[in-house]
Design a protein around this nucleic acid. Structure first.
Lengths: 302, 302
DNA sequence: AATTCTAGATGAATTCAATTCATCCAGCAC
DNA sequence: GTGCTGGATGAATTGAATTCATCTAGAATT
């Protein structure tokens, strides 16, 4: 790499050249004029050329100084501009939060008014995606991951654990006085979510009926029956709400519907889900606002 | 001015980004990898954004890092380029010496072979000009001034003092057995140098005949006779050498001709000249080569 | 002409940013 | 399981940056 003098010298030179005054440069850089004098002298020694004519006043740039000044001035201005841009994307910039589509849409977004009330100045950018964004590569500031155990790649806080319940709209099943048996379930259309094949513990009708056989004598092959299938958990939930069938859904994602009766639990047999983990990097330069969000999310999860 | 972090941080960042390695950056900047780690951490804190993804190896720039890197890299390269240019005009560059036209042509230039023998690597730029170049404004590195007393504007070393002699070519005056009286001088064409009007002590025929009247009984009005006039001292000297007339010349400038007989002194009445002063700034960043030249010039002047 | 003011120069002393040291950590290779 | 590598971190150290004290030389003021 090129041999550069200490960059402090260039900064002193630039300010002195712009002010044509060591005193003025000193005031701007919050040092004494003596400091500027020393810095300029060092730079001149480094260059082998005088950069200023000291007398008569005011100072005047020499030919060498004239050559160097615009380069340093423009260079430092360009640095400052780029740094401002980086800062703007951080300080005062939005916290970027990545979560699964379903969680973002059905848990986080509905609660944002409360977030805004608590932190009016700290804006969020929410990425609803099932892709796993990399915090270490600064693709997001916070990740909310759905996993069986604390995921790697940062500090983890377990927000909550969910349970998958068999639910249906009352418009489909009527005003039930008690829950349905597995055989009775087979009388209704069923909704299946096509989980990624890597998810062996996925809350499917197959997994449900296996568990049911330990509890009930007569369990038809519910997984073998024709059913409505959705790749998006969100869409499956919407279909259940609109009485298109009976679905197995995460109670975290249908909390309001369970509370309002828009969906009702039609079997007592549930499937244990995983946990929602909030993940962040403790070394993140914006760890303070990140902790603010983390505290808030935990308070929302209780 | 824009708020910049310590530029040391930017230099560390640039090297680390280019190597994608703190260790590599450290080796280049002659510090430990820990120093780089600290510097990057400070810059990230300053920016509010991570600039590197540390894991997995090798390091990778984040989006913020990608934004900042080319700006800093190009900026530092531009600085280095400009500094090299300034250095090239100094270190390894020529010493700029300003002297009067006549002195440059007739004393300095003829001796340059000896200078080259003594200092083969230190080149000179010689400005033969009667304008007074300003050392303080870095218009030249060394000035050789012809003056009655040491000029202001720097440290002065008196090289030599000259004497103005009445000289002519033997082709004009023949093989004289003795010097000519003022009356005999009037029988030949006379050469006059038109000195700047500010020079009241200029070695003119007028000044010469005033002094001659104190010595000789019969002194014709030599200054009143028609004569060949030159504005350039150099041209007057050349005219004398080519037997066009009798001239009053500085013995410093016609040393070789006096030695070889190309010009002979035709009157014992001489006029005291001034001195040649070598002037430089003791605070000049290139004071070492300047002193080399100074010593050499003094040795040549003896 | 004498005195005062101003801004830069210089070397010694002081401050504090930069750096090193010692130790730790987490992947990776063997 | 063990050893290696490159980065992280806090305390200690180093030395670059800065201040202090004094000086200088023009310019302004008296």
């Amino acid at each position: 790499m090129h041999h550069l003098p200490p960059l402090t010298e260039l900064r002193a030179f630039e300010a002195a050249a712009r002010h044509l005054s060591f005193k003025g440069a000193a005031a701007e850089l919050f040092v004494t004029p003596t400091a500027i004098s020393h810095q300029i002298k060092l730079l001149e020694r480094h260059c082998g050329r005088d950069l200023f004519r000291r007398r008569p006043r005011p100072l005047k740039l020499t030919a060498a100084g004239e050559l160097l000044f615009p380069v340093v001035r423009d260079g430092l201005a360009t640095f400052a501009k780029a740094l401002d841009k980086v800062r703007a994307s951080a300080v005062g910039g939005r916290l970027r939060i990545t979560a699964t589509n379903a969680f973002a849409a059905r848990w986080l977004v509905p609660r944002l008014p409360k977030w805004r009330d608590a932190h009016p100045r700290l804006k969020l950018d929410i990425f609803g995606t099932d892709a796993i964004l990399d915090l270490a590569a600064d693709e997001a500031d916070i990740a909310i991951r759905y996993a069986r155990k604390p995921p790697a790649g940062g500090r983890c806080i377990e927000l909550m654990r969910d349970t998958f319940r068999v639910v249906a709209s009352p418009k489909l099943v009527g005003d039930l006085r008690k829950t349905l048996s597995p055989a009775e379930l087979a009388n209704f259309p069923l909704i299946e979510i096509e989980w990624p094949s890597r998810n062996r513990d996925a809350p499917t009708w197959q997994r449900w009926q296996t568990k049911a056989k330990l509890r009930f004598k007569r369990v038809p092959d519910l997984a073998g029956l024709p059913h409505l299938a959705f790749r998006e958990e969100l869409h499956a939930i919407e279909a259940a709400i609109s009485a298109q069938g009976i679905a197995i859904c995460s109670d975290v994602l249908i909390g309001p519907e369970l509370a309002s009766g828009a969906l009702v639990q039609v079997s007592n047999l549930t499937l244990r889900g995983y946990s929602f983990f909030l993940v962040y990097l403790p070394t993140h330069p914006r760890v303070t606002p990140i902790m603010s969000f983390s505290e808030w999310a935990r308070s929302m999860a209780r």
